[in-house]
Every structure is written in structure tokens, then in C-alpha cells.
Design a protein around this nucleic acid. Structure first.
Lengths: 235, 235
DNA sequence: TCACGGCAGGTTGCATGCAACTCGCCCCCA
DNA sequence: TGGGGGCGAGTTGCATGCAACCTGCCGTGA
């Protein structure tokens, strides 16, 4: 993987998503991940029709794994299926932004709360390391790597909860959020603000203050939502 | 459907679940719902092996829709798949009970909070009607219908949120909870307690007090968890 | 001009066949 | 007697074929 692939491999490069996939098990899993990444990246934009045999040809597999992948993605609400007509990359509305961040506020708050209470070995170190890396990248100005590190920060947080249900839902929420686009960090001041919010969460967890961790994480999400709304209104 | 089917149609009656399915669209959907209900009911108990071929014969369909159904249920964590070996109804652990109720506390609280704020037309009426029905059934002593009405109460609540993400996650949480068994209402005093908790949520929503609604719903879940734990320890 | 029926093209839904994989068991050998 | 290799039964993974279904279009009749 290159250093700064903020570039969205638009259209046609579907095959690249397949090859980039982390050597999963079954063909169906690989196809599912490839299509999911393509949708989250915007390479397959909302409202685009997906034809089973077109995808199958492009990915060099039969229709069966493609079918199963589409079915799964539809359960994740990333696509919408119409019987005998095809599948459609699910459209995103403004209301979705508000709805998803509302749920995310609750769940990230809960995750941070539990993390502060459990503080599993190595968590503080890992979070600090990611935070430091983000600070360095922020000074350099590129946003591509920041996006990746941010995902990493939140992944650590939800895995620290040790709650499989929470992890699963937060993962799905994150997928929904990624679909809104990557623009947030380009808003003036947002990167600095975000780093401060992460810092606050990290400090609360390190101090073992569960309530503060919950509050700071929830606040982080409210601000992220505001920034997202701002970014969408500007565009 | 009969009046009191607390009976779990154990084993073999898989076909009944198929026929009971509400006339869904595709074969795959019907099969998915049938298998899901069978698992939630306990007709297909944890750790039971599921053979595609066997299920297909029993449901009089080919392996394809069964395959797709199994894949979906595995995404919902209701079954676990092992490559080339088969699928297994996912085992349930005691930790799952605690984990799932922790998430549920957050999400039901959020749903009640939003419901109190939005108060969509007819919500109070519907909730009251269900609550009244539950009170009546409670006096008669049967628990089967109570279970159904309770599901209805919580369904109304999450649908009142108008938040598709919240609705989806709460539905999945409810599925997980149903797997723990139906025993809660047989604990002495639990039914009365539960009715009081529902009443408190209902009153808070009717009064438009969002914070109270959130608190009461969260408390309801903590108590439900305790009752569940109690029931499992007794058994 | 408009409404309606039917036909054709395109797409998925489901069934089935074959190859690949897993695992238990037996046999062989040390 | 114990360990290891390999064979065979059982099961899924994926490919492919055919039928059903949906839609848009064209022609017909009022």
C-alpha cells in the first residue's frame, strides 16, 4: 500500500480492490470485502446499478460468490436489491448523517466508558502511539494518512471494550460514516480540534475516569457530526 | 396462530417455521426467517450442526437459498460457519448476556429519549394499548402472550425513533436476547416489576420528558438483565 | 391523442453438477 | 504398542444452466 492514497480509484479499478484484499478465506469473503471497500471509497457511487454478471466478469469469478456478497451488503444496508432488476448502491441522505451520528455518540461513549474501566494491557500505549503519529502527520499537512490513523484510533477503542456486540455495531456505524466522504479534515481548524478531542478521551481513559471518557467520546462525536454537516453544506 | 404457543416446536418441526413465515418475497428470505425463528425459539439449539443438504430437503428447496440464508445468519452471529465442515448454531455464553444487555441499555435509552422528543402521532395510544393488554394478561397468569406483547412494546419504541440505524441494531440485540430463553416472567414478582417499568417509560414519553424516558428505559434494561441473570443462575 | 395488451430483451432466482477441502479411520512400520 | 501417512466418506465452494420475472416499447383500438 502506498503512503498517500487519498485518491479514490474511481470506476473500473474494481479489480484493484480485489487484489488489495487481505488474503481472506473464501472467494465470497474476498468479493464482499472488495465490493464493500469500493462502495465506502466512493469508487462505486450511490445510485449506481450493480449487475451480477458484470461484477462477476470484472472480478473473474462466477455469479455465485457475487450474489452472496450482494446479499450480505444489502443486509448491511450498503446496497438495495430489487428483485429481477438488480442491485443499487444505497443512496445517502442528509438525514442519514444525523441519524448515524446520534447512534455513534451513544456507542462510542459506551465504548470509551468501558475502556476506561477495563484498561486492557497495552491500550494506553497503542492509543498514545496512534495519537502521536496523527499529531506528526497533522503538522505535515497531508490528510490521507490521518484518515487511516483515525480509523485505527477508533478501532482500538472499540476493541478495548471487549464487547462483541458493541464492536460489531460500531464497525457498521463506521462504515456508514465513511460513505459520507473524507472531507472533514480539510475544514480549517478541524484537525487541531480533533486532536484535542482525542487527547481528552485518551487522558480520561488513562486516568481511569469512566464517566469523563464517556462524556469526551460523546462530545467528540457531536463535534465530528457538526464538522461533517458543515462540510456537506459547503459543498 | 394459536393463543398460547409458549411451546417450543422442538426439532423436526422446521417445516412449521417455513409455513408460519409471513408470505415473504424470495425463497431465500423465507428460508432465512424460518431458520432464524427456529434458532431464536430454541428449536435449533446452540451447538447443533446444520447441514445444507439436510435443511434443503427438509424445507423442500435447493441448497442455494439455504446457503444464502446460512451466510446471512452467520453475519448476524446466530450461527458459526466452518469451511467445508458445516454451520453450527452459535453457542451462547454467560458473558454474552452481560455484553448484550450493556449495549441494549444504551440503545433502548436512546430510543426512548428520541421517542419522547418526537412523540409521533399515535405512539402514546399504541403503547398504552399494549400496556393495558399486558396488564390484563398478567392477571390471568399466562406468560406466552406476555412475551409477544413485550416484543411489540419494544418494537413500537424503536420504530418511534425514526432512526433506521437504531432500529436495526435494536432488532439485532433483541434477537440475541431472545436466544437466552423466555424464562424471565416466571420469576416471582418480575411481571409486576416489568409492568411498572414500562409504565414509567410510557409516562415519561407522554410527558415529553426525554431525559426521564432515557433513564427509565435504561433502568428497565438493567433490571431485565438482573432478572435474566437470576433466572440463569437458578436453572 | 391516449390507454391498454403483449412481446422481447435483460436480469435475477433457484437448481444442479463437479471439484476441492476436511477429518476420522485404518493400516503400516518402527 | 505408539506414531504417522494416506485413503475414503462427507460436506461445502463455486460454476453453470434454465426458468421466471420485470420493464420498456410498440402496435392497436377507441
Amino acid at each position: 500500500m502506498g503512503a498517500t492514497e487519498t485518491q479514490r480509484p474511481r470506476e473500473g479499478g474494481l479489480r484493484a480492490y480485489l487484489d488489495a484484499s487481505p488474503e481472506h478465506g473464501s472467494t465470497t469473503d474476498v468479493v464482499t470485502d472488495a465490493l464493500r471497500e469500493a462502495i465506502l471509497d466512493g469508487a462505486l457511487p450511490p445510485s449506481r446499478w450493480l449487475r451480477e454478471d458484470e461484477l462477476a466478469r470484472e472480478l473473474s469469478v462466477s455469479r455465485t460468490p457475487v450474489r452472496e456478497a450482494l446479499r450480505r451488503l444489502s443486509d448491511e444496508r450498503l446496497i438495495v436489491r430489487a428483485a429481477h432488476r438488480g442491485s443499487l448502491v444505497a443512496p445517502m441522505t442528509f438525514d442519514d448523517v444525523l441519524a448515524v451520528y446520534l447512534v455513534r455518540e451513544s456507542l462510542e461513549g459506551l465504548a470509551a466508558q468501558i475502556a476506561a474501566r477495563r484498561r486492557p494491557a497495552g491500550l494506553i500505549d497503542s492509543l498514545s502511539r496512534v495519537h502521536r503519529a496523527m499529531t506528526e502527520r497533522a503538522e505535515e499537512g497531508g490528510t490521507g494518512e490521518l484518515v487511516r490513523l483515525n480509523l485505527e484510533f477508533h478501532r482500538l477503542l472499540r476493541e478495548a471494550s471487549g464487547n462483541p456486540y458493541l464492536e460489531r455495531f460500531l464497525t457498521q456505524v463506521e462504515h456508514a460514516v465513511r460513505r459520507f466522504g473524507r472531507s472533514t479534515y480539510e475544514l480549517p481548524g478541524r484537525v487541531t480540534e480533533m486532536l484535542a478531542e482525542h487527547r481528552a478521551i485518551l487522558d480520561a481513559i488513562a486516568a481511569g475516569d469512566a464517566d469523563a471518557a464517556q462524556q469526551k467520546a460523546a462530545e467528540h462525536m457531536r463535534r465530528a457530526r457538526d464538522a461533517r454537516v458543515q462540510g456537506l453544506l459547503d459543498a
